[in-house]
Amino acid sequence: MAAIPPSARFRNLAQRARIIAALRDFFTGQGYLEVDTPVRIPAPAPETHIDAEPAGDWYLQTSPELCMKRMLADGFTRIYQICKCFRTGERGRRHLPELTMLEWYTAGEDYTHMMAQCEALVPHVAAALGSPLQLSYQGRTIDFRPPWPRMSVDDAFRTWGGCSASAALDSGRFDEIMGLVIEPQLGWPRPVILYDYPAACGALARLKPGQPDLAERFELYIAGIELCNAFTELTDPVEQRQRFAAESERRRAAGKAVYPAPERFLRDLERMPAATGNALGVDRLAMLLTDSDRIDDVVAFVPETL
């Protein structure tokens, strides 16, 4: 696919710079500390569907999650960072193997707090670009006025997928139905918060009290685009170790690399307070706020041009 004209590329990159400035302004105003954790780490979180890029005997981070949670354990309560993350094999219209992530954590709160924060964050950034309440994306209008609709994952599967979420998992079709059938329906004409994923889909999330088959996790969708992934954090090191072992076994069964256990993270998890965390794709946010349908059009370079 041809590259966009230089004038459009300049315009998009200028808007991207404004977006990042507005993100920083939001978190500074909320009393968050911007942090900068290492990109090269000895052990990433072992998630079945996310593959880390080797860097010598270590790895490039797929997320700053483990280091940032260790900072929570050390007494930091409100932290964020905007950083590069790396995931092998991820390339497409909305995917890059090197992506820009906004990640933030709040001690003493759960995922409902994070839902409300998203409802404040995205309009704040849009307002900085001159679109406080509405956005035109690919010829359709997105209404940002909160509160945003919230829908459980199971309701989404029953509405569009023709089955329950648990049935989709049992048949091995959860990701297929979610990606091809459900996601295109979400976030039109308003952002939607898709919440309460099956427990098997939340490797680092706390299970819902009284409903241990569900994880306190949500994703935000706007215009059919998954913008962020958030959850109430799991703080039990024994349970987290068991989940990591299960994820590692699934990776082994799938013929994927098995990573070393992140022992220092597991040790520090014993001291970590209750918290909620969120990871937002800055490149995808730039797509939405520049009316771009390809991630290639909102970054300075893509792998194929290097």
Score class of each variant (00 low, 15 high):
Y195F: 12
V302S: 12
C67V: 04
V299E: 12
R250Y: 08
P212C: 11
P184A: 05
R284W: 05
T159H: 06
P149S: 09
A230P: 09
R243L: 11
T62M: 02
I50Q: 04
S166R: 14
D268R: 12
D296H: 14
L306G: 04
P191G: 14
L99H: 10
W58Q: 12
A8N: 08
Y59I: 00
R94A: 05
I225T: 07
R241D: 06
I4Y: 12
D293I: 10
G202Q: 03
Y137H: 09
A107E: 02
K256V: 01
V181K: 05
L186G: 07
A203C: 00
P132W: 03
S63D: 04
A199G: 07
E109P: 02
N278Y: 06
I50R: 06
P147G: 01
P132E: 11
T62Y: 00
R24N: 07
T106M: 09
L33Y: 06
T235D: 07
V122R: 06
A127C: 09
F231H: 01
G56L: 08
F26S: 04
G224I: 14
M115K: 05
S131I: 00
T159Q: 14
T290H: 02
Q30R: 15
G161Y: 11
F244A: 06
F76V: 01
E263I: 08
A17I: 10
S136D: 04
C228L: 13
A245P: 03
C83T: 12
A215K: 05
P42V: 01
W160K: 01
R190N: 09
P189C: 13
R294M: 06
P262W: 10
Y137Q: 00
H49E: 04
L66Y: 10
Q185M: 10
L227D: 02
P262Y: 13
Q30L: 14
Y59R: 00
L169W: 00
E263V: 06
L169M: 09
G92M: 05
K84N: 04
T141G: 05
A245H: 14
I193H: 03
C228T: 15
